[in-house]
């Protein structure tokens, strides 16, 4: 990425996080199959992918916990394999599974980290109190973490990753298990951090989360990057908008699907009596309406809306990000 400065020269700013062809195998499983992506300083990179896509593995490699079999990871300009200690001075990590010591109180957990980072006794206590207040845990500060609810534990874990004021933060599915209110608080937290120039790599299975928080999104599937871009780019790629049609008579669903497939050139999704297809150009809607009229299908509903990332994911990977309930099905070609 290059930025122009006022004098007119172009200065190249190295990315805060850079993964270059990362490969990691566990026996017969290939968790990462050559994943490459990067995050610009002060931005949020959303790593989006379904279960087993390799999100945690990528995070662990970049956080120096796991050596890649091939490829290179650079964090803050330092190689994660050659200079892990330097990388660790820059990063904070909130793993997928809370890393707090359940036998210790909230305060003790944070003081432990601060002391390990070389802060004095009083400074450690101050920092702990500050973070506990920031995460709404002051009342629970003196209780053992094992008595915390899942959400409280997650927040304590996040606080622990911030003790050293990291410039680069790894958050592996940070909102899994949080209620909507806590999730929104965490989102605000992340926004505050990036406003201060912190770079955040955030993995998630929730398309909405990536859409809300990320400046850039990397979609990974089976260990490889299947798409990169801003949320807007990705939506544009699967059709900026989605045309949604519901026939008056449910038995005409298949006819609608066939017409939509033919005119849009891609296979539509059929869900709860509605056919949805990426609207690649403006002419699609009138064309579909005319054709359906010709074949005698009447529509109860016809809408043009922005694509959700869920649809983007489907378009990019050929399968859904999150397996839905049974009544959701992707109809296969029947003709």
């Amino acid at each position: 990425m290059t930025l122009s400065d006022p004098s007119g020269t172009v200065e190249s700013v190295p990315p805060a996080i850079e993964a270059d062809g990362l490969v990691k195998r566990f026996g017969a499983t290939t968790a990462l199959a050559g994943a490459s992506f990067s995050a610009t300083e002060g931005t949020v990179l959303g790593v989006l992918g379904p279960n087993g896509a390799g999100k945690t593995t990528a995070t662990r490699v970049l956080a120096t916990l796991l050596a890649p079999d091939e490829g290179r990871g650079l964090v803050g300009g330092y190689d994660v394999v050659a200079e892990p200690h330097r990388v660790r001075t820059l990063i904070g990590l909130t793993g997928q599974y809370a890393g707090v010591d359940e036998a210790l109180t909230g305060t003790e957990n944070l003081v432990l980290i601060a002391r390990l980072l070389g802060q004095g006794r009083a400074a450690s206590r101050r920092r702990a109190a500050e973070l506990l207040a920031q995460f709404g845990l002051t009342d629970a500060a003196g209780r053992a973490a094992r008595t915390y609810s899942g959400g409280m534990r997650r927040r304590l874990d996040l606080a622990a990753s911030l003790v050293g004021r990291p410039r680069i933060l790894f958050l592996d599915e940070p909102t899994t298990g949080l209620d909507p209110a806590s999730r929104n608080e965490l989102w605000d937290m992340v926004r505050t951090l990036t406003d201060d120039g912190v770079t955040v790599l955030l993995t998630t299975q929730y398309l909405e989360e990536a859409d809300q928080l990320a400046d850039d999104i990397v979609v990974i599937d089976r260990g490889t990057v299947v798409a990169t871009g801003t949320p807007r780019d990705l939506k544009a790629r699967a059709g900026a908008a989605v045309l949604q049609m519901r026939p008056t008579q449910p038995e005409q669903l298949d006819a609608v699907r066939r017409v939509a497939a033919e005119l849009a050139g891609t296979e539509p999704t059929v869900e709860q009596g509605t056919v949805a297809v990426p609207a690649v150009d403006d002419a699609l809607m009138p064309a579909v309406v005319r054709r359906l009229d010709d074949v005698g299908v009447s529509l109860a509903e016809l809408t043009l809306r922005r694509a959700t990332l869920d649809e983007v994911f489907l378009a990019l990977t050929g399968h859904r990000a999150v397996e839905d309930d049974q009544d959701t099905e992707i109809l296969k070609e029947t003709a």
Binding site: R60, R88, Q96, Y97, G99, V100, I113, L116, L117, G164
Partner: peptide, 20 residues
Amino acid sequence: TDLQKGTFDRFRSLPIARSA
């Protein structure tokens, strides 16, 4: 316990001695 709970990962992500 530390390995199971992820506490060990947290320690390993800190700039401290590997053996500490």
